[in-house]
Computed example of a mutant assay.
Amino acid sequence: MSRSRASRRSVAGGIGLAAAALLAVAAPVPVSAAPAPADAPTAPVSAASEDYYAPAQGKTGEALKAALHDIIDNQTKLSYRQVWDALGDTDEDPANPDNVILLYTGRSQAKSEHGGNLGDWNREHVWAKSHGDFGTVTGPGTDLHHLRPTDVRINSIRGNKDFDNGGDPVSGAPGNHTDGDSFEPRDAVKGDVARMILYMAVRYEGDDGFADLEPNDRVGNGSAPYHGRLDVLKQWHRQDPPDSFERNRNEVIHRHYQHNRNPFIDHPEWVEAIW
Rank of each mutant, 00 (worst) to 15 (best):
S2H: 01
A6L: 05
R8K: 11
G13S: 05
A20F: 02
L22F: 12
L22A: 11
L23A: 10
L23K: 11
A26I: 07
A27H: 10
S32F: 00
A34G: 05
A34V: 06
A36W: 09
A38Q: 11
A40R: 14
P41M: 05
V45C: 15
V45H: 07
A48Y: 02
A48G: 05
S49K: 15
E50V: 10
Y52F: 10
A54Q: 15
P55N: 08
P55V: 10
P55C: 08
Q57C: 06
K59A: 11
T60C: 05
G61T: 00
A66K: 14
A66D: 14
A67K: 15
A67L: 13
N74V: 09
L78V: 06
Q82W: 03
Q82Y: 04
D85E: 12
D93Y: 00
A95E: 02
P97E: 02
V100P: 01
I101C: 06
A110T: 08
E124L: 01
A128K: 00
G132M: 02
D133A: 15
F134S: 04
V137T: 15
G139L: 09
D143E: 13
L144V: 12
H146N: 04
I154H: 14
I154S: 12
D162A: 14
F163I: 13
D164I: 00
N165G: 04
N165A: 11
G166R: 11
P169C: 08
S171K: 10
G175V: 00
T178F: 14
D179I: 07
S182V: 06
S182M: 11
E184F: 01
D187H: 09
K190I: 02
V193K: 11
L198R: 12
L198V: 09
G206D: 06
G206T: 07
D208S: 11
G209H: 12
V219W: 00
S223A: 12
H227Q: 11
G228S: 11
L230S: 08
D231G: 07
L233R: 09
K234T: 02
K234M: 11
P242Q: 10
S244T: 15
R249F: 04
R249S: 06
R249C: 01
R249T: 09
I253G: 10
Q258N: 03
N260E: 00
D266F: 14
D266G: 06
E269P: 00
V271I: 15
W275N: 08
